[in-house]
């Protein structure tokens, strides 16, 4: 990864921009394209808003495009071609399909456009110039460390229910691997009483958790791959008249809704918060660096993850709910 500019530069640049505003911006023109998967999910909305703010601070032209769903490949293919035609210097893209979009990305790079994958990698990962995302293994490790310590503190022998994503989906697999490693479990450990796929969907997670509770009354640790799955698990616990205080429920994401309505009241014990704003900010700054300072991006950038809880576990570093609220995404 080349030298990474930080928000410090952004802050300084704001002052410079104000000064330059009076006599015109003499900085080299940069045009950045941003393609998200869809914008129904506040995660992608937060990412776009930060990209817009950073572009504004840097005096950069930002073109944006989005699809209609997480599987809308066609819209993204068209957006890449349009942006290349408009002469963008770089494209930031969260790919809906890591393989199907490869030809479009290769064409863009052949035309001299820098391509950075955000959030989701291409297959192969080095099909693009750089890849900025959460360290999902670390996210899983954080909630795993917490769940293990909390279970020990409460004198529980962990009986774990795993609410996973979808088989073969890299981020879900990585989170799960990190969680199990921190818990000191392998995938076949008898302490894992259930491991189901929920596609990260609240309804599916509710159904899956209801079934798990029917078969395993002694579940006391629940891992949810994301917050909609955690909220689905809570729905099922409520329907089964099980007090959430009797269960250690951990998740990954850090959206505002789950932090305020799940973590703050203690229904979700802890979540690993990721930062789409960092992906967007660093992505725009990386392309600005490449154009203005001739420092092209390469490799992988970890955009950070923090454990958020209102009920800390002994020996596990975490940030409080107020921190989570300040840095969450969405409403």
């Amino acid at each position: 990864m080349t030298r990474r500019r930080t928000a410090v530069v952004t802050a300084s640049a704001m002052g410079m921009l104000m000064t330059l505003g009076a006599c015109g911006d003499s900085r080299e023109e940069v045009t950045v394209g941003l393609i998200t998967k869809q914008e129904e999910n506040p995660y992608w909305l937060a990412l776009r808003e930060t990209a817009e703010k950073t572009a504004d601070d840097q005096g950069v032209t930002l073109l944006t495009a989005t699809g209609t769903s997480d599987a809308d490949v066609e819209s993204q293919q068209k957006a890449i071609a349009d942006m290349v035609a408009k002469g963008v210097n770089g494209i930031l893209i969260a790919p809906t399909d890591s393989a199907a979009l490869l030809p479009a990305v290769e064409a863009a790079r052949a035309a001299g456009v820098i391509v950075i994958a955000l959030d989701t990698p291409f297959d192969p990962v080095d099909a693009v110039d750089a890849y900025f995302t959460t360290d999902n293994v670390r996210a899983g490790e954080l909630v795993g460390e917490y769940a293990a310590a909390k279970a020990k503190e409460l004198g529980m022998t962990p009986q774990v229910a795993m609410l996973g994503l979808t088989p073969g989906f890299l981020s879900g697999d990585q989170r799960e691997a990190g969680f199990l490693a921190s818990m000191g479990l392998d995938a076949k450990d008898p302490a894992i009483v259930a491991d189901v796929d929920t596609q990260g969907d609240r309804e599916l997670a509710n159904d899956a958790m209801a079934k798990i509770l029917q078969d395993n009354q002694d579940v006391n640790v629940v891992y949810a791959v994301n917050e909609p799955a955690a909220l689905g698990a809570l729905d099922a616990l409520g329907a089964a008249n099980i007090d959430p205080a009797d269960i250690v429920l951990v998740s990954v994401d850090g959206g505002c809704g789950a932090i305020k309505d799940g973590v703050r009241p203690g229904l979700i014990d802890a979540t690993a918060q990721q930062y789409p704003a960092n992906m967007a900010r660093e992505g725009v700054l990386a392309i600005v660096d490449a154009v203005r300072d001739d420092q092209p991006p390469n490799g992988y950038l970890d955009t950070g993850v923090q454990l958020i809880t209102g009920n800390p576990a002994p020996g596990v570093d975490s940030r409080d709910v107020a921190y989570g609220v300040r840095n969450c995404w969405g409403e």
């Binding site: 928000a7 660093e282 970890d302 950070g304």
Partner: peptide, 23 residues
């Protein structure tokens, strides 16, 4: 409005953190 975003500090090196503090 000019303060370094708190979330961005998560991925800063110690030197970058010191620079952000100064800024």
């Amino acid at each position: 409005p000019g303060l370094t975003p708190e979330a961005s500090k998560v991925i800063m090196s110690p030197q970058e953190l010191a620079e952000s503090q100064e800024a």
